[in-house]
Nucleic acid binder design. Structure first.
Lengths: 218, 218
DNA sequence: TGTACATCAGTGAACGCGCGTTCACTGATGTAC
DNA sequence: TGTACATCAGTGAACGCGCGTTCACTGATGTAC
């Protein structure tokens, strides 16, 4: 299988879009054997090129992995932003949807998720990678802002704290139970249900019951 | 450095306690370069023996890693149980302490934590490993039981759900911010504070305010 | 439109290296009597 | 207490293998005129 800009017809001496193909290869191999389970040579073989070819596009294996993580964060940020949809039709509905999207991403793209959160890719060395990661978190942060804005000013918790709490909870559930691969633990309920209940209880603890939210909605 | 049962004096043709030494080597190397960052030969070298020696004690690298994870869960379970101390002097105090112990373990033993939760060691193939993991969770579960028992019977949430929520939150914070190594993200507060606030808000959401708890304590 | 040339993105052979694993071996330890 | 022997837990040499990386190369593509 080949991944060329011009579809699968790209052939011949020049691959056409080897960089993309290597990223896809890495994702495929990570999904199979984990982020440590592939080599530069593996990726080349998977893409159908000689072992020297990847060097035209990536300095080394780590650079390839970092690029995978960056793309992962970008797709993640896009998915989250689309799901949040600026809080429409109302903040509570959108917030719930956001959490489900987070879990769905971890399940649908375990390879990306691994590269982003578990492969030990250092965030601070690559500017684009760090920015992509921050963009993703910014969506959560913005959602938390809108959420605390529902509350009376004197009772508002810091939005950053709320965002971090929800992020941690969701990431925890995703890592422990919500993965598409074999490392996950079994659970007597759906991860989505577990998350939804947690968020409801947490928001109630903030004084943001469904009643308050419903009242604000009108 | 050698790790023998008889202290550091073990020498000579027979190592004395190579199995322990290999586990320590693995921990050291995992802490340095992550769970994927060491080889069987590395471990042997670190322990000061020939590359063939580890085969007397472990089938292969995976078996060594699984043993590390098992020991990690056992130490984890012990630490958690000791910290929980059957809910003394009162359930809320002990519960808070339990969370702090969880985070402290992840920070103090990042290598164990990696092997347990991130190395992709399959839980279901090794009976002892699975049991150790279940023993650790059982402590959390028991604590959640005592916690919900503080509440009036008609308002009690399932203890299992509470345990899973707290586990997820704590694991999420530990993975994202609370690690002793370089992969952690920076945070404008201590992970412990973040966790404490989350748990307080969550419990309040369950209807278990500090007032209720204090009332029960008397 | 054709041609000459520069650049790009691959090839494939080669290298040194370290890994996993096996093997016959051997020094150290434990035990029966 | 001494001796003979079995077992244990190491050695060290060897092997085949695949990896990372470099290199001169070459086919394909793009561009100036």
């Amino acid at each position: 299988m080949r991944w060329g800009k011009r579809g699968h017809a790209a052939r011949g001496y020049h691959h056409g879009n080897l960089k993309e193909a290597l990223v896809h290869a890495a994702l495929e191999l990570i999904a199979e054997k984990g982020p440590a389970g592939f080599t530069f040579a593996d990726a080349a073989r998977w893409a159908g090129v000689s072992p020297a070819a990847p060097y035209r596009h990536f300095r080394d294996r780590d650079a390839l992995l970092a690029d995978v993580a960056r793309r992962g964060f970008e797709e993640f940020a896009t998915a989250l932003a689309k799901s949040w949809d600026e809080g429409k039709p109302d903040v509570m509905t959108a917030f719930d949807r956001l959490g489900k999207t987070y879990l769905a991403f971890a399940k649908r793209e375990p390879a990306y998720y691994s590269a982003m959160f578990e492969a030990g890719v250092p965030l601070d060395t690559d500017r684009e990678l760090r920015e992509a990661s921050e963009t993703a978190f910014a969506v959560l942060r913005a959602a938390a802002e809108k959420l605390v804005a529902l509350m009376p000013p004197q009772a508002r918790p810091p939005a950053l704290m709320v965002a971090l709490h929800v992020w941690s909870m969701t990431h925890g559930i995703a890592s422990l139970f919500g993965r598409g691969d074999a490392a996950r633990r079994t659970l007597p309920m759906q991860p989505e249900e577990l998350l939804e209940a947690a968020v409801l209880i947490y928001l109630r603890g903030l004084g943001l019951g469904l009643d308050t939210a419903a009242a604000k909605r009108r």
